[in-house]
Design a protein around this nucleic acid. Sequence first.
RNA 1: CGGGGUGUAGCUUAGCCUGGUAGAGCGCCUGGUUUGGGACCAGGAGGUCGCAGGUUCGAAUCCUGUCGCCCCGACCA
Length: 588
Amino acid sequence: MKFWSQYFIPTLKESPADAEIASHKLLIRAGLVRKLGGGLYTYLPLGLRVMQKLTQICREEMERAGAIELQMPLLHPAENWVHGPRWAAAREIMFRADSAGEGKRSPREPEYVLGPTHEEIITPLVKAEITSYRDLPKNFFQIATKFRNEIRPRFGLMRAREFVMMDAYSFDATDEGSVKSYHAMKAAYEAFFRRIGATAIAVEADTGVMGGSFSHEFMVPAEIGDDDVIYNEESGYAANREKATSGLVPKDLPDAAPAGGLEEFATPGVLTIAALEAAPHSVPADRQFKTLVYVGDGKPFLVILRGCDELEETKLGSLGFTVFRPATPEEIEPVMGARPGSLGAVRGTAKNFPALAGVFADQAIRLVGNGVTGANKDGFHLRNVNVSRDLAVTKFGDFRRVRPGEPDPRSGAPLKVRRGIEVGHIFKLGTKYSEIFGAAYTDDQKQNHPMVMGCYGIGISRTLQAIIEQGHDADGIVWPWAVAPFQVLICLLDPQLPEAMELARTLGAAAEAAGAEVIIDDRAERPGVKFKDADLIGVPLRLTIGGRGLKDGIVELKWRAAKDIAKVPVAEAEAQLAAAVREGQAKA
RNA sequence: CGGGGUGUAGCUUAGCCUGGUAGAGCGCCUGGUUUGGGACCAGGAGGUCGCAGGUUCGAAUCCUGUCGCCCCGACCA
């Protein structure tokens, strides 16, 4: 039992100017966190209590799923990363940590980095400690602080530079075993989000810089989310926009027959899809081939899309380059022989085709069949370009961005889009890390094999804010029972009355006996202030004791989420409060 | 890193265009009156106007630079 006057809950009437969204304002107004700097937050007592609830529930669900808790350093020797598979990409978001001593010049390369995640640490550990199939599978997890030098921290805890994450790493002998571990984690995640009272849906996702073979993100639907989820309720399809695909191109689509010979025509000053659509050329965007030049691991490559489609850059990750970026005009001209606006992938038209690492075509260009593309000669385009006859395609793939309304790949029904907050992510990694770090085991035939890995993360601190974003009203936070900093708030309107204080203690003890955590607002404040603060901090169950009610022999019981207030005779208060606590627990 | 915005008391801000004593509300302290949905009265403390230069008799205000923060974009739990 805590007494508000002795505790520390600095609430604010007004939102700080730098908070923009509801959950961020409430985090600060309700006295959960305070900002130290961009993306850095102190957890005040109330915020810490919620974090502890979340970590405990997370721990329980991970252990229930068979994962084993450990704790790794937050400060990593840089060499672990330098020798890993993603140093080039990962270093961009890592903080370096070297001696701060005056006069000690930091070396060109960092000695230590602050850990953004722990594959590079756990895999060498497992390599050293586990060598037999008898010791597999294993799944290790920790709940710890992560550091990422986000280019743009945002919305309080939503995207912070320092945040709390549960991260888990599974090691299996076989691919089937790894799939099983993956599904065990997916089930554990679902149980976790259910228990904390959050709505989070699993969606198919891109594997990004993690690499690996497949993955799901857990998304909390919210307008302020950073991600677009493409979905269709009936078929159950749900995917991050970066990963989403559609049934736009029929699987049995035959290759289009050539419509005529290649013809070059002059298009002076026409440099965009839109310009070619306009008169006098009047080529619809869906009859054009768009040719983009990228640089992957130092070599240029081409991507061909329909003129009406947008590239989903993330999908280029499937091509296997460690890092890639759009090419600059200076890089394009020597290879293609033309500047952007007149580029194409027709055989024999580029100046230096062999310099290309490949020509990757989105499969939707097959819908174009015969179309128009740049001639690799400034001011000229080609018509009657036939996909199979003329384009020098290395490989077809899915590179376009899906649009709402396109057919669901499963059912053909129109796809929809909504925003979401990514609170968790699970990856089936395969053997990418185990091969590089040499994490192998010996099977019962004395054969060595790389372990098959999976990795799994839940943004605990981000989840905290997502819960607020999902559960608030005009007056403040509405905490789910399981994660509320306290479950019962006793609003003691007249703390100076000894009998009121005595009753508050008695009822508080009764609520605790029933399994709730109790805070008594015993401050010398006016009732209005206490009610406003009670709504703001969002404790699920409020019991009000006032001198006025006591004269009539009643106290009041109110759920934060509901409007109605129950008047309860003092004689029954203990029993009814205990019953309400049990009700809250049952719902959680 | 590109684009936009913003820095004045613990918080929210006015003043800046048009240079001349830095003002309010909340919060805080003292006293009093109040007491069921952010009370009222009286008194009080609290500011190097982000920082550094410059222009000027004089700069919160104009100029230059710099730093922090916020928002939009690319990335992520």
